[in-house]
Design a protein around this nucleic acid. Sequence first.
DNA 1: GGTACTAGATTTGCATACCAGACATGTATG
DNA 2: CATACATGTCTGGTATGCAAATCTAGTACC
Lengths: 237, 237
Amino acid sequence: MPETSGKQAASERVFQQIDSGSIGPQLYRFLRESIIRGELQPGQALSESEVARKYSTSRQPVREAFIKLAEERLVIIQPQRGTFVVKISVADVLDARFVREAIEVAVVQEAATSALPSAIKELRNLIEQQKEISHGHNVDFLALDEEFHRTIAFSVGRAHAWRVIENIKAQMDRIRYLSLDDATPIPLLIDQHTRIVDGIEAGNPTEAAAATRSHLREIMVSLPNIAARFPDLFEPI
Amino acid sequence: MPETSGKQAASERVFQQIDSGSIGPQLYRFLRESIIRGELQPGQALSESEVARKYSTSRQPVREAFIKLAEERLVIIQPQRGTFVVKISVADVLDARFVREAIEVAVVQEAATSALPSAIKELRNLIEQQKEISHGHNVDFLALDEEFHRTIAFSVGRAHAWRVIENIKAQMDRIRYLSLDDATPIPLLIDQHTRIVDGIEAGNPTEAAAATRSHLREIMVSLPNIAARFPDLFEPI
DNA sequence: GGTACTAGATTTGCATACCAGACATGTATG
DNA sequence: CATACATGTCTGGTATGCAAATCTAGTACC
């Protein structure tokens, strides 16, 4: 214990990446990513004190992180029993998808009526980057895909709408990480991205919306397969 | 201090209404309502220890409530400075309205294609109740209005979508409480509700969506007036 | 062998103690 | 008079201790 006070040297912590701010939110982001990536298995127990020990902090920030995760339905806190990574619920995924489609379609329609040329250029640029992803690096595609959707929202000043989507999206992302290999082929997704930008550039909200809808419905194709392949990770229906 | 242990008799607490669960979430709901109703003024400081004393609890649950309120942008936590009720931001209200419209239009469209007769009956019933509200009891109308919208969502199994709306709605509700007297006349709002249900019953998603959109845009009419009338309660642009 | 019970270990919720940073105020200094 | 500075008091962030509920293991008993 070389530290004189409670505050730990930030660089000692495993989860300290480029994160800033106080420990609670940092832990939240770290655990959230771990759950989404499947590194923390559905059903697994997460005790406050255990996590606190592991990351050299106290129970307090851990507790705050747990509460946030519980609001997103990524963990469930059972008082006096324990906190557990929730199994993936098909219903939750579909609920999240529904809300995401509703918001994102509205955003894209706005973009189709008012996006600046610079934004369209940025989107085309992102699509080019997506094309350059080597076969098998599907994780990299996920990041670029997220950036693509976020860029659309920000291009019309809908940062708040994106924040709502971002929260909700966690449930969908768990599926995407599970289906890294047998999901919709990347070239097809890139085509869909292209259609979206085409609709935006053409100033055609209807077309852009339709393209966004079919793009966001791809997950409904892979979902049943994934649920069948990993029954242990899913909530029984 | 007649209590032997830390746990207080629940009935002693002011905010104990019909609330259940642990103290943190209860406090959250209570403070949230207080802010929405304007009983806690925008700009007002809320110290953790002060609130804890006032409601005979410790700082811990208060802290959890503050964090939740901060996520909804109802308060802002400034470390080592204080926590303050945020002034109403016109941009935040419009952001919330945009997302709400997107989600709720999607829900209503679903309702128009698959709502059961029993749900339609319930909605008509709610409209009748709204008509019976005596002049000047606008607060009662707010409750029935909320129930109307929630009923539509639940009638098509979109509880999750409603939960998202509910969170976001806080920003809009602050305006509605400020504009209790000079807002859109209640009979007009009831007409709009009727149009929505008509569209649903007719199985006409387009009509139901259009009615919902215009209904949810009413706030944009009153917003500038309110912002002009209560400049102190609003974030300077 | 099976069942009821008890003791211990864990769990989260809540309370309390301590810390560093921000701020207001009063004072000394130019 | 103005400015720099010391200081006391507030804040939220963190650490820790305690209580109640729950689960587990083992044991005694039938």
